[in-house]
Design a protein around this nucleic acid. Structure first.
Length: 337
DNA sequence: CGTCTTTGACCTGCGC
DNA sequence: GCGCAGGTCAAAGACG
């Protein structure tokens, strides 16, 4: 998987990017990108509904309308859809996803937060970013740390025949309470490197086989104390060259990585001082496109068969549009490689 | 020795 | 209620 410029249906080097800002009247803007990578960003809107604990349990009824930024054909979506489905599930047949208007504001914040965590990947893994796509979820975020503490504190009623380890895993919550989730963003990145450098330090805490996929999913947690951000990394089973990275939560600290004056530095929380507290962690690669997500049709590909990229147009919120334009206007017109 | 990964067991939520 | 799949824990091992 070293050939990142193969003719595989993806459109590398295209940087136009539009985001329909969930009916809030945001303007249509071009989204510039960083460092030569061509990314597909999938912003999954928030939902107040419970999404269960499953990583794939995004609520299809709450997705915002499409960002049409792909400059390819529907076939391109088909190519990507499987990968996307790994983390955010499949796309709906219609090209406009149901919108949870109540979450519009949350999405603005989340999108910005993503930018805040942007990374050093381009500098450190020059081969890596080629195409990525992301989605996000904005479930009502509740301090996960507290629930974790509860888990530990309340894990005392294990059965007698269980060991200490088992006892620590007992009921953390009251009956009927559902565990809230932090906002999530999934990024599809064309890379032969599984764990992409994003400027933060992560500790792997688990790995699971994924149903219908030969590739396992890895679970990482930010190593910074009191930081509850997690991410999952897996490969698309349809296109193994695509790495799906799903971020959950918001960093409460500055990026610890050596920033080297690159995009990561510019996108670090410190750089985004005015919004750093509420900005989501961006993945290392940058974005040319946004796509919708849904959790339906998970097992019935092709997911994009009825999707016409030309039908939709997303708009990026003013704040982020201006932000990225200020960051590196040259990406606005980056030529094809 | 500290940090990180691996890995099997366990927990939780959901669908049937 | 049961089974499945996703998510998490934590001991053990690897590594620098």
């Amino acid at each position: 998987m070293s050939d990142h410029h193969r003719n595989d249906g993806y459109h590398y080097g295209t940087n136009s990017f539009y985001h329909d800002y969930m009916g809030t009247g945001g303007s249509t803007s071009t989204f510039p990108f960083f460092g030569g990578g061509n990314s597909l960003m999938y912003n999954q809107p928030s939902t107040s509904q419970n999404l269960a604990g499953s990583s794939s349990a995004y609520d299809p009824t709450s997705y915002m309308s499409f960002t049409d930024c792909l400059q390819g054909t529907a076939a391109d979506y088909n190519n990507l859809s499987g990968a996307f489905d790994m983390s955010c599930n499949s796309l709906p047949d219609q090209s406009v996803c149901p919108v949870d208007n109540s979450s519009a504001d949350k999405n603005t914040t989340s999108l910005g937060e993503a930018a805040a965590g942007a990374a050093t990947t381009s500098a450190e893994n020059p081969r890596t970013p080629v195409s990525s796509l992301s989605c996000s979820s904005n479930e009502t975020g509740v301090e996960e740390e507290s629930s974790k503490s509860n888990t530990t504190d309340l894990q005392t009623k294990g059965s007698e025949d269980r060991d200490d380890k088992s006892k620590k895993l007992n009921k953390p919550k009251k009956k009927g309470e559902k565990k809230p989730r932090e906002p999530r963003f999934a990024f599809l990145t064309k890379s032969d490197i599984d764990h992409l450098e994003d400027g933060y330090r992560w500790r792997k805490y688990g790995q699971k086989a994924v149903k219908n996929s030969p590739f396992p999913r890895s679970y990482y947690r930010c190593t910074s104390q009191k930081c509850i951000v997690k991410k999952r990394v897996e490969r698309s089973f349809q296109d193994p060259s695509i790495v799906i990275t799903t971020y959950e939560g918001q960093h409460n600290h500055h990026c610890p990585a050596t920033l080297r004056g690159n995009a990561a530095a510019m996108l670090s929380p410190s750089f985004l001082s005015s919004n750093s507290a509420s900005l989501p962690t961006f993945p290392p690669e940058f974005i040319t496109h946004m796509l919708p997500s849904t959790s339906r049709n998970y097992q019935n590909p092709p997911y994009y068969q009825n999707f016409n990229p030309q039908d939709q147009q997303f708009q990026l919120p003013h704040d982020y549009t201006n932000f990225f334009q200020d960051m590196n206007p040259s990406f606005m017109h980056k030529p094809e490689p």
